[in-house]
Amino acid sequence: MSFFTKPTKAKATATVRAKDDGHDRPVPWIENRPRSMTDVSAQEEVVQVLRKCLESQNLPHLLFYGPPGTGKTSTILAMTRDMFGPELMRSRVLELNASDERGIQVIREKVKNFARSTVSQNDSGRSCPPYKIIILDEADSMTSDAQAALRRTMENYSKITRFCLICNYVSRIIEPLASRCAKFRFKPLPVEQSKAKLAYICGQEGITHEAGALDQVIDASEGDLRRATMFLQSAHRLYTNQALTAPAIQEIAGVIPAQRIAELTSAWQSKSYEAIRTAVDQAVWAGFSAHQIISQVHDAVIDGAQWTSLQKAQLAQLMGAVDKCLSDGADEHLQLLNFMMQASKLVA
């Protein structure tokens, strides 16, 4: 199934289509979010509790946290759709991405104005609770002042407005704010459920794949279903009319071949600066990311039997320091070379 062509009525498709001025336009597969709570994959404990809240219509403030791509935003959007219906969602639900609008001014203007506004008239004929919902995605990117202002807003308008904070790192949410919310931890999707979801997408889009291809997608995405879906769509577009293979997925995901990682770790034994520099130069010239190299070297070290527990701990500490430097914007080539030279001394 072509991503850019309109699907026929005879065949269902997982490709989402949105209306723009009366015309259909294709959008990425990751936008095919669950339409209701029954469509949410995994997270059984969270879904069970939220369904109870739906039945009683007594919803507390919510705090969803966990790794990206585990269904946090999709779950709350599916819940609000079940709660209000598509007609009332426009007036009852405000969704903001706090990573873009994270200052105190946004809290004082957009959030506060929406929170204190009266609840819109319910003309849909369905039973729904008498309050609105404000969804703040990436709430851990909000400044401390903005979070403090949000706490006061939550206190003043809790009778007519509920808040749902979504974040990756709950430790970055101030305690006065977190204590006012019911916390729900979203776990990485199990391999079986991720594979079943990807197989469903392949069936809907007419994608053929060889054995091991979906396993490679799951390994490369590290439990992130959104990333896995993007890998699958990118590979399908690149290898149209071909069966997807594990090497093809590795190429799309930027996974470094195991042989290249073995060459880097083997260079430690040489104790030669020239040999180490050659291995690093070849990896950099091949276009591999330094972050990806460090990540896969870390996995190789942890699984390797040729290093002692003390050496593994020392190498992990060294890789943590290098990863911090890379995150701060240090030169990748120099950081990799420095890491390799220090690692060669540790494994002596």
Rank of each mutant, 00 (worst) to 15 (best):
T5Y: 09
T5R: 14
K11M: 04
R17C: 02
D20Y: 10
D21G: 10
G22E: 12
G22R: 12
D24W: 15
E31F: 10
A42E: 12
Q43W: 04
Q43N: 11
E45L: 12
L50Q: 04
K52R: 14
P68L: 11
T70M: 02
R81Y: 02
M89S: 11
L94K: 12
L96I: 15
N97T: 06
A98W: 02
V106E: 02
N113I: 07
F114Y: 08
N122M: 13
S124K: 02
R126T: 12
A139T: 05
D140K: 03
D140Y: 10
A146T: 04
Q147L: 06
A148I: 03
A149H: 06
R151A: 08
Y157F: 15
N168M: 10
I173H: 07
P176F: 07
Q204S: 13
A211C: 05
G223H: 05
M230R: 12
F231Y: 15
Q233L: 07
Y239I: 04
Y239H: 14
L244Q: 00
P247V: 03
Q250Y: 00
E251P: 00
E251H: 07
A253Q: 06
L264R: 01
S266M: 07
Q269W: 10
S270K: 06
K271F: 09
A279G: 11
V284Q: 04
A286G: 00
S289P: 05
S295K: 15
S295V: 07
A305C: 02
Q306M: 11
Q306A: 11
W307Q: 01
T308C: 01
S309H: 10
S327F: 02
D328W: 06
D328G: 08
D328Q: 14
V347R: 00
A348S: 13
